[in-house]
Structure formats: C-alpha cells, structure tokens
Design a protein around this nucleic acid. Sequence first.
DNA 1: CTAGAACTTAGAGTGCACTCGAAGTCAAAC
DNA 2: GTTTGACTTCGAGTGCACTCTAAGTTCTAG
Lengths: 124, 124
Amino acid sequence: MTLVDEAVSISEAAEQTGLSTHTLRYYEREGLMLGGVGRASSTHRRYTGLDIQWVQFLTKLRSTAMPIARVREYVDFVRQGDSSFAARLALLEAHRVSVVAQLDEMTNSLAAIDFKIATYRKGI
Amino acid sequence: MTLVDEAVSISEAAEQTGLSTHTLRYYEREGLMLGGVGRASSTHRRYTGLDIQWVQFLTKLRSTAMPIARVREYVDFVRQGDSSFAARLALLEAHRVSVVAQLDEMTNSLAAIDFKIATYRKGI
DNA sequence: CTAGAACTTAGAGTGCACTCGAAGTCAAAC
DNA sequence: GTTTGACTTCGAGTGCACTCTAAGTTCTAG
C-alpha cells in the first residue's frame, strides 16, 4: 500500500474533516484547495493526507471567521511559492489580531451572560 | 429634566449601541425589544436607558452567535413575567454551554494559526 | 412660516456560505 | 455483465441577518 493508495474518496474526506461532500466540492470550486484535488483513474476525487490536513487548517480559519475570499487570497499566495512567505505571514498575523479581538469580545459577552444567570439564580 | 426626557432618538440610540438605525428598527420589527419602544409626542421612537441596556445585552447574545429566533424566545419568556424565570435561566445556561464551546474551538484554532505563524517566522 | 434634516413605513435587495436538485457517469459486488 | 449506490457537474435554491429604497411625515432652527 503506497501513499498514493491512501488517498480517500470524497465521502471519507467528509467524514475525516466533519464537512459535507457538498461543502468539500464547494470549497474546491471556490479555489480553496491548495493544489487541485487529484482524480482516481477516472473523474472521482481522491483526497491525500495533505489535502485533508489543509482542509482541517482551512476549517480553523473559517471557524475563526475568516471569509472565504480571504482564504482564497492565502491560497493564491501559497500557489505563488516561496516568494510569498512574507505576504502569508502578514495575512495570518492580521487574522490573528482579529481572532484575539473576537476571543476578547466573546469572553466579555460570556461575563455578561454569567452575570445575568447569577441574577436569575438569586431570584429563584 | 426627568427620566422620561432622557429617552433618546433612534440615531442617538444607534450611536450608543454601535448598531445602525436600520438594525434597531429591524430588531424591533422582529419582536426583539422587551416592551415595545416608546414614541415621542408623535411617531418617532424614543429609547429609554432600559431600552439601550437591553440592546446592549442583546448585542452580547448576538455576538456569541445566538440566532435571532432564540433571542426572540428569550424575549417572549421575559414578556410572560416572573413565571418564566426558570425557562430564561435554562435558555441562558444552554447558551452558556455553546459560548464556552465556541471559545474552546476558537482558542484551539488560534493555537493552530500561531503554530503556522511560527513556522513562517522560522522559514524567513 | 419655511427649509432642510431626521424621522416614518413596507417591502425589496444584498451578501455570504453553504445546500440541494437534476441528470447523467462510474465502480464494486454479485 | 448487470445492478446499486456513490460519484460527477452545473446551476439554482436556501437561510440568515441585515441593509437599503422610496415615498411620505415630522421636527427644529432660523
């Protein structure tokens, strides 16, 4: 069993990433896959371990509210090769700032919700 | 200057809450205001301090991804009066669980982003 | 009293990220 | 070799939360 053989079908990729097959195809259509997903002796998609890893990282970007368009920018940088290291770093660092701000806002909101919960607990 | 006089126009309410006047009207239309916003000697809205406070809490619920429909449920409970304390508490506690999960996921994603940033920093 | 800004409503439009449907193709099991 | 279920593409549809438009009304400053 070679590494190539380990590439999996779209349904298995869906299972491994927690996304639907619809979403995986949508991401590919939107140009979010790094190198283009391979096809097995046919038209059917085969996701390699690297593809899966990328989708998992992409999911982390999405779960921190990076818009699809920004992800695509990042992907475009990756495709440009090593010359885009600085650009990729800058993009991720800018996003990091936004994530920290979101964490801050959410923590702040959680405190307000907890305060309200506490008042209800006292009131019962 | 009485408390009633301190009720403010929609544009001032927008400024104080960080929402647009459009959004404030939309929230009212969707039944998200606790008691119905008062009108000043006319058709024009007047937001009281309590209205503003509620909008600020509502904004915290929204910023933690509570859907509009869930906020409306909460509002309906408030309108039902004291008998709904337990229901409100349950709703907020359930939401709290989701907020903590979101914080957890986001923290997790931040770590992955930081790891990637670190690899870029090393690579330059 | 009047001009202009701010307000009103109802309904339509927008943007994002999926999500689904239809019609056809392919592959693994028997 | 045929059946059955997974796969393909492309385009349309959905859901959510705003966001805007249009046409008309009201407040406020001068």
